[in-house]
Simulated scan of single mutants.
Amino acid sequence: MRIKCLYSLWALVLFWALIFALLIPAYTVYLIAFLFTKYPQDAFQIFPRYIFKLYFKIVPKINLILDIPDELPMGAVYVATHQSSIDYPILGSFIPKYLSLTNVNVTWIPIASTSAKLIGIRYLNSSDLGAVAKSYEELQKQLNEGRNVIIFPEGTRHQAGEELGKFKKVAFRLALNTSSPIIPIVIEGSGKVLAKGDPCYKTLKQTDVHVKMLKPIDPKNFKGERELLKYTQKLLQDKKDEMCEILYS
């Protein structure tokens, strides 16, 4: 257990070292882009995207296997299953021009708060209805302008081997209100590396983490958000079960 925790500490230090090493060039490019483009954060976001990719190359215990198309849809709501804290960097390594919600509050750390905002992360305080409405408006504007949103509809992480948790409505409401496609993604295996409620790696063996992107779902084919939600959840659960049967049988 001690070795696993030491390895986890090394992996965490490596992750943040890579982040901080590129903050100066990222902010420099951002400030230049700020003078010429409407979305200067796109320039900033390029740096963490490559940091995430580099991180998964360096950490030998995670073998990331992506099954995604060469060209990704834009102006879409990407909804993914959620087992581990490494799921966000996984998605951030290949989805461009996105905003994503988190319930982890880093607003009290100035540089972390600013950097997270430029990367595309928005802290959502669900108890503040005004803040929730403001966040929803920002996400809706993002989609209306042909950009992407990443949401983990479970709102939390499920344990490896468990069924998906109950989905929240926000992703599906956004899709219907903006006529944006839903892009379902199954992430399977990340919970076998780093699970909810445990800061230490569960294994020191190399672990495959599979990422499968499914076909876009057109919200116009559904009567309302509840029907769209149920369909998407069943689709993700069925694909997750199918993948687990192939991978672990």
Results as ranks from 00 to 15, higher is better:
M1A: 12
K4R: 12
Y7E: 13
L12V: 04
F15K: 03
F15I: 06
F20A: 12
L22M: 12
P25N: 03
P25K: 00
P25C: 00
A26Q: 08
Y27F: 05
V29H: 00
V29A: 03
F36A: 00
Y39S: 12
P40T: 15
A43K: 07
F44R: 11
Q45M: 12
Q45L: 11
R49H: 03
I51V: 14
F52E: 06
F52N: 09
F52Y: 09
L54D: 14
Y55T: 05
K57H: 13
V59A: 01
V59Q: 09
P60N: 04
I62Q: 04
N63W: 10
N63A: 08
L64E: 06
I65L: 03
L66D: 01
I68D: 06
I68C: 00
P69Q: 00
D70N: 14
D70P: 11
E71T: 08
L72E: 13
G75Y: 02
A76Q: 07
A76S: 11
Y78I: 14
Y78A: 13
A80M: 02
A80P: 01
A80R: 03
T81M: 13
T81K: 10
Y88K: 13
P89V: 07
L91C: 07
G92F: 11
S93C: 04
S93Y: 06
F94Y: 11
F94K: 04
F94I: 09
P96W: 15
K97H: 14
L101K: 14
T107S: 08
W108N: 14
W108A: 13
A112V: 11
S113N: 14
S115Y: 11
A116R: 08
I119E: 10
G120Q: 01
G120I: 10
G120H: 06
G120V: 10
I121A: 12
R122A: 12
L124N: 10
N125L: 05
S127K: 15
A131M: 05
A133V: 12
S135F: 02
Y136T: 15
E138L: 05
E138H: 05
L139C: 07
Q140M: 08
K141I: 05
Q142P: 00
N144I: 07
R147H: 08
N148F: 03
I151K: 09
G155H: 13
T156D: 11
T156V: 01
T156G: 06
T156M: 03
R157H: 10
H158L: 04
A160H: 15
A160R: 12
A160Y: 15
G161A: 11
L164I: 06
L164F: 05
K168H: 09
K169T: 02
A171N: 07
R173A: 02
R173N: 13
S180F: 11
P181H: 00
P181A: 01
I185C: 03
V186D: 02
E188L: 15
G189T: 05
G191M: 14
K192N: 14
L194H: 12
K196E: 00
P199H: 04
C200S: 01
T203L: 12
K205R: 08
Q206C: 09
D208V: 15
V209H: 03
H210Y: 15
M213N: 04
L214P: 02
K215M: 08
P216L: 07
I217S: 01
I217M: 02
D218Q: 13
P219R: 15
N221Q: 15
N221V: 10
F222S: 09
E225L: 04
E225P: 08
R226K: 15
K230C: 00
Y231D: 08
T232R: 00
L236Q: 09
K239E: 15
D241F: 06
C244Y: 13
I246N: 05
L247Q: 03
